[in-house]
Lab assay of single mutants.
Amino acid sequence: KKKIKIYIENENGEKKTIEIEVEGDIDEIAKELAKKYNVKIVKIEP
Rank of each mutant, 00 (worst) to 15 (best):
K1Q: 09
K1M: 12
K3A: 08
K3C: 09
K3R: 12
K3I: 12
K3M: 13
K3Y: 14
K3P: 10
K3L: 12
I4E: 00
I4C: 06
K5R: 11
K5H: 06
I6H: 00
Y7E: 05
Y7H: 09
I8G: 02
I8M: 14
I8S: 02
I8A: 06
E9Q: 07
E9G: 02
E9T: 04
E9F: 06
E9S: 05
E9Y: 04
N10K: 13
N10C: 13
E11D: 09
E11M: 12
E11N: 10
N12E: 09
N12L: 13
G13I: 00
G13T: 01
G13R: 02
E14I: 08
E14L: 08
K15D: 05
K16N: 12
K16H: 15
K16S: 15
K16F: 15
T17R: 04
E19G: 01
E19M: 07
I20H: 01
E21L: 09
E21N: 07
V22D: 06
V22T: 11
V22L: 10
E23V: 13
E23Y: 13
D25M: 03
D25V: 06
D25E: 07
D25S: 10
D25C: 05
I29P: 00
I29D: 01
I29H: 06
A30Y: 07
A30P: 01
K31N: 09
K31L: 11
E32T: 08
L33W: 14
L33T: 02
L33Y: 15
L33I: 15
L33R: 00
A34H: 04
A34Y: 05
K35E: 13
K36Q: 08
K36H: 07
Y37K: 02
Y37R: 02
V39A: 14
V39E: 03
V39R: 00
V39Y: 13
K40H: 11
K40M: 10
K40E: 06
K40Y: 06
I41K: 01
I41F: 05
I41Q: 02
I41P: 01
I41T: 02
V42Q: 04
V42N: 04
V42F: 05
V42H: 05
K43D: 06
I44L: 04
I44A: 01
E45F: 08
E45V: 09
E45K: 02
E45C: 14
E45N: 03
E45L: 07
P46R: 05
P46I: 15
P46E: 15
